[in-house]
Design a protein around this nucleic acid. Structure first.
Length: 775
RNA sequence: UGCUCCGUAGCUCAAUCGGCAGAGCACUGGUUUCUGGUACCAGGGGUUCCAGGUUCGAAUCCUGGCGGAGCAGCCA
């Protein structure tokens, strides 16, 4: 066993047009190491938001699994490194997984380090039995003081020579919760005089009486990174454990722990750690702390501010995931740390959008133009291609006969009329040398419109231009040069004043003026770019009104734009707030008020639901009977409000073929998950038709929910195999198709399947490659 | 100052056993173009951090120095 295997492999991995990690993997495959497997993982701690730097790691790890799939048995997992109960949360975990999927990667599996706590405990006992670990009872100050400094060795703990038996006993009692936080820790017994600070008896376990977001209060001892991470990799059969350069020193502990925890027969298959350079982008900051400061100081609007390098921010800015993937592959990996110019990233984004975003005309700083030889009130619709010819050709290859192609390759109609807006900057009273746009007496091409000549300039008292007047040449319709062949040098964009849609355009620029805002110490905020967000009010051609909200555009000659999804979210929230402001109990008498407040207080019902139920005495008593008989008033309320009420539009409560107790029984079935919600709706409609008892319907129709993975898996597989085209598109990233498969599966099981389980099984079946399925 | 890692074009990286220092991006110029965009072509740009050594020959190996980064959390 070489003392530093990874360093030796690195040194040997010279040459080729590939980076050092790919070179090492190539060689491992050639040598038949790891049985031809390449297993990687992306291991974030769910304690914050992901940024472009994480994207580099994601693209590397998941990219390797994709790249080597034809030569090796590849796996890449998403693993949450959730070993510290402080600061970790389900919310972060969800956001991280969503970001990974948004980036275009479907993890082969999602795992949690917190599921391995039992195994970490066992491995710790292995170390204790080998006298390679001990319980230290020094205070944290003492431990720090005795660790020594970079120049002086540390001094061994007085507890270092406790017997194996005493250590076993103490450690077990640590786990049992007999001690307070900080009273004891478990440490590896390595070398207090090691020149590597990290090897001076690193801590393995600490006591933390804290609520873990997944394990609750099951555990009160938690493993440290250096102990847990390598074991997580080993448990998951990771072959190449990739991390950033700052973990270089930690590799010594990584190897030490695995050397001493794993039995001899597992040693040949054990994972090794390799470090690569993290991404540093110019003109921005990347550390969690600095990003948080920007958010908390309201310098930006939130974690998803489009100027931030967070994945959430880039997503909101409209950056396609493909551009991020391309960029991450472009910068590559090495072991030399440096700073990537932001222009590199910006280029990758423009390059991607160039052939994805249809062209559209928008004027962001409007100047009025009157076409004096165009009749007032006349509107002409001019046809314009959505893409210039070169991009159309590129698109044709990209899209083939895809339905989107029609729209993207096609054209649209844009209205032309007597009054137009052009960009204020596209006109100069006194044009400088080399300026070939509009000026007094000059002719320009109105893109895809007509040639226009400026004949008159209207100014206000300050001498500012308020209007341009002039004429168009009817022979240049569509912007085509007439037979004579004259062609103006300038082409400018325009919109018809009467038809254009008003827009607020936000022009985002880099957040900082300094190429390395975080290079100095604390005052990175001093380098903020005051013009990082400029808002303009202008007009866009009306064709965009019918587009889907996620459509990206290139505003001709200006840049790329899309609808800010946050605006749509805010609009929804405003609607909801308005609805909430309306007092649902307006006009209620005392009796109704009393019922309303009782439902709110005792049953914690939603205000709207409570008001609906409380309003009518008849409905209220029906609901209360149903609620009491079901033992699940919440569920009963949902049924009465959402389903029953619809029926009551044309049937009186008294005319229903069933009574409140039946509804209560149905709510109970639903609430206890004995039937799926889909099946429950079926039962309800049968109750409406026949008045039959819900429990009898369940028995007769055999509607009990199927929550057995063994029974559901074959159905899931069948559904996937029966639709290979959809499955292929799903694997290509069209994850929305999961809904299609759910529909198919529900039809197969007549709505009986436990939806959560079914979805999980479908994802697994879909993730399996077609080759594996035929095996 | 101890240990670890890293210094090649403005930036990111190549350079096969030690054998003519290259590519992409950026920049400049040209061509095409109904976007001053895109695309295509060409060009400029190098003390391979420095000094010594080994060698016929060093970016590569050795020694010393300089510079940058990381490590002394019961964070990851």
């Amino acid at each position: 066993m070489p003392t530093d295997y990874a360093a030796e492999r690195r040194a040997a991995a010279g040459g080729g047009d590939r980076d050092f990690i790919r070179t090492i993997i190539d060689e491992d495959l050639e040598m038949g190491r790891h049985d031809g497997r390449v297993v990687t993982r992306f291991p974030p701690e769910p304690n914050g938001y992901l940024h472009i730097g994480h994207a580099k790691s994601i693209v590397l790890n998941f990219g390797l699994a994709e790249e080597y799939a034809d030569r090796a048995d590849t796996t890449c997992r998403l693993r949450f490194d959730d070993t510290n109960p402080h600061a970790e949360s389900e919310e972060y975990a969800r956001a991280i997984e969503e970001a990974v999927r948004w980036l275009g990667y479907a993890p082969d599996e999602v795992r949690h380090a917190s599921d391995y706590f039992e195994q970490f405990y066992e491995y710790a006992n292995v170390l204790i039995r080998k006298d390679k670990a001990y319980v230290d009872s020094q205070s944290d100050e003492e431990i720090r003081a005795n660790r020594g400094t970079v120049t002086e060795p540390g001094t061994p703990s007085p507890y270092r020579d406790r017997s194996v038996e005493e250590n076993m006993d103490l450690f077990e009692r640590m786990k049992a919760g007999e001690f307070a936080d900080g009273e004891h820790v478990l440490r590896a017994k390595i070398d207090m005089a090691s020149p590597h600070m990290i090897m001076r008896d690193p801590l393995l376990f600490r006591i933390r009486h804290a609520e873990h977001y997944r394990r609750g209060d099951e555990w009160c001892i938690y493993p440290m990174y250096d102990f847990a991470h390598c074991l997580e990799d080993a448990i998951e059969d990771v072959t190449h454990s990739l991390c950033t350069l700052e973990f270089d020193n930690n590799r010594r502990v990584y190897d030490w722990v695995l050397d001493h925890c794993l039995p001899d027969e597992e040693q040949p298959q054990r994972p090794y750690q390799f470090e690569f350079n993290r991404l540093n982008l110019g003109y921005t900051v990347m550390s969690k702390r600095k990003l948080r400061q920007l958010v908390e100081d309201d310098v930006v609007s939130g974690w998803d501010d489009p100027r931030l390098p967070t994945l959430a921010g880039l997503r909101r800015r409209g950056v396609p995931p493909s551009a991020i993937r391309r960029f991450c592959r472009d910068v590559g990996i090495s072991r030399t740390q440096g700073r990537v110019e932001i222009s590199h990233f910006e280029h990758a984004i423009r390059d991607d959008l160039n052939y994805k975003a249809p062209r559209v005309m928008a004027v962001l700083d409007p100047l009025e133009v009157t076409v004096t030889n165009w009749p007032d009130g006349e509107t002409e619709r001019l046809e314009m291609p959505n893409f210039p010819p070169e991009e159309r050709d590129a698109l044709r290859d990209e899209l083939n006969d895809n339905e989107r192609a029609e729209k993207l390759l096609g054209s649209r109609e844009v209205p032309f009329s007597r009054t137009l807006f052009i960009e204020r900057d596209d006109f100069r009273k006194d044009p400088p040398e080399g300026y070939h746009r509009l000026a007094p007496g000059r002719e320009v091409r109105l893109r895809y419109g007509y040639f226009f000549t400026c004949e008159e300039v209207v100014t206000d008292d300050n001498g500012d231009v308020t209007e341009i007047r002039g004429t168009i040449d009817r022979d240049t319709r569509g912007g085509e040069a007439p037979a004579g062949g004259r062609s103006p040098r300038g082409t400018i964009h325009w919109v018809s004043a009467e038809h254009a849609l008003p827009v607020e355009a936000r022009l985002y620029d880099r957040l900082f003026e300094h190429p390395a805002p975080d290079a100095g110490d604390e005052d990175f905020a001093e380098h903020l770019n005051p013009d990082s967000l400029v808002t303009r009010r202008g007009f866009v051609e009306p064709s965009v009104a019918s587009d889907p909200p996620q459509q990206r555009y290139q505003f001709e000659r200006q840049g790329y734009f899309w609808q800010d999804p946050d605006e749509r979210r805010k609009a929804r929230q405003r609607e909801q707030a308005k609805a909430a402001e309306r007092d649902p109990t307006a006009g209620f008498d005392e009796e109704q008020q009393a019922r309303f407040h009782r439902y709110r207080r005792e049953l914690e019902l939603d205000a709207g639901d409570a008001a609906t139920l409380a309003e009518s005495a008849e409905l209220a008593s029906f609901f209360e009977t149903a609620g009491t008989s079901s033992g699940a008033p919440q569920a009963a309320a949902n049924w009465v409000v959402n389903e029953l009420l619809r029926e009551l539009k044309d049937t009186a409560l008294a005319d229903l073929p069933f009574d409140a107790k039946d509804v209560g029984r149905l709510a109970a079935l639903d609430d206890r998950d004995e039937v799926s919600s889909r099946a429950a709706k079926k039962i309800f409609s049968e109750m409406l038709a026949t008045g039959a008892d819900p429990d009898q319907i369940v028995e007769k129709r055999n509607l009990r929910q199927v929550s057995d993975a063994e029974k559901l898996r074959p159905v899931a597989r069948e559904v996937v195999e029966a639709h290979p085209d959809e499955a292929a598109r799903y694997r290509d990233g069209k994850e929305g198709l999961i809904g299609f498969f759910m529909g198919q599966l529900m039809q197969e099981t007549r709505g009986k399947a436990d939806p959560e389980l079914a979805r999980a099984l479908l994802r697994e079946e879909l993730a399996a490659s077609p080759e594996q399925e035929t095996d």
